[in-house]
């Protein structure tokens, strides 16, 4: 029914993750004014890897939180939305926030996350890091600052991430539906 194709294997994922971390370090110096925020539910797998790598590379403990945006989404009543936990024991007032998500598709959850973030103060700047940027599928003017890979996929296709704990990384699949489906 579907023909999955690997577009990022575990080895490439490790390289990409390292590159994203070095890009962040270039822009954020010692991270004293920066915080990393992973978006629930799926962005946190990536953000936890990023924060572990950043802590290792910089030798510091960088402020880190996980944000659930369910209550701020605009597709409420179109599908069942079950909230996840928010873990943010700091305020973002005057801080540079790095939002982390796995796949950037329509941009709607990023819009919701900007609303949700306001509950924790007025950040000086908000940046967006995504592992996969699905180009040409945006419904809202959102663009990422840090991108793992860029994928050109049509709406009927699906991008999925397998977080394989054995291999310490992710494999990104592209699922394409056959014509007859």
């Amino acid at each position: 029914m579907v023909a999955p194709r690997i577009i990022l294997d575990a080895e490439r994922f490790r390289l990409t993750l390292a590159r994203l971390c070095y890009q962040l370090i270039e822009n954020h110096d010692d991270f004293s004014q920066s915080v990393v925020v992973g978006l629930q539910p799926r962005g946190i797998f990536l953000s936890r890897k990023i924060i572990a790598e950043l802590n290792k590379l910089t030798g510091q403990k960088i402020t880190y939180g996980e944000l659930d945006v369910t209550f701020f989404r605009d597709d409420f009543r179109r599908k069942a939305l079950i909230p996840q936990n928010t873990q943010m024991d700091f305020v973002v007032e005057g801080k540079k926030v790095i939002l982390v998500d796995d796949v950037l598709f329509t941009g709607r959850s990023i819009r919701a996350s900007l609303d949700a973030l306001q509950q924790f103060g007025r950040p000086e700047k908000v940046e967006l890091l995504v592992l996969v940027d699905r180009r040409w599928s945006r419904e809202i003017p959102v663009s990422p600052d840090y991108v793992g890979i860029t994928v050109d996929a049509v709406f009927s296709e699906k991008v999925t991430l397998d977080w394989n704990t054995d291999q310490q990384g992710a494999i990104v699949h592209l699922l394409t539906k056959n014509q007859e489906d």
Partner: peptide, 15 residues
């Protein structure tokens, strides 16, 4: 999760 929301500085969500 709502108990968490009403203990934040901004206690409102737009759902």
């Amino acid at each position: 999760t709502f108990l968490d929301v009403i203990n934040r500085p901004i206690k409102k969500v737009p759902s």
